[in-house]
């Protein structure tokens, strides 16, 4: 009984995470310019991967594997915005102009 509840909770986390990853990819393909694609990838990928790994932690229970997964989540949550910011800054320095609605 308890195992089923845990499995359902972790499945919900994984499915929501996958939904955000798919939305991020659609955003990467659909949005009109570089800076707005940055919004889709920087946010949706971070939360999608984070939610999926949290689902795996819940599925796995508490042991050393979960601690490693937790480190992975914290690292992704710190590193992904920094990487996004670095790419945006490089593009701005080169002089890429943002797209405006006419």
């Amino acid at each position: 009984m308890l195992i089923t509840v845990i499995n359902v909770i972790s499945a919900v986390f994984i499915i929501v995470g996958l939904f955000f990853i798919v939305v991020g990819t659609i955003g990467l393909l659909r949005l009109p310019d570089f800076y707005s694609r940055m919004h889709a990838t920087g946010k949706c990928d971070t939360l999608g991967v984070g939610l999926t790994i949290i689902g795996l932690i819940i599925y796995n229970g508490f042991n050393f594997i979960s601690v490693k997964l937790l480190f992975l989540v914290v690292f992704i949550f710190v590193a992904n915005p920094v990487a996004t910011h670095a790419i945006a800054r490089a593009a701005y320095k080169v002089g890429l102009q943002p797209w405006r609605r006419q």
Binding site: G27, R30, H39
Partner: peptide, 11 residues
């Protein structure tokens, strides 16, 4: 909130 917002705008 941010993710729901982006998802709405993209879809």
């Amino acid at each position: 909130l941010a993710n729901v917002d982006v998802a709405k705008r993209v879809l």
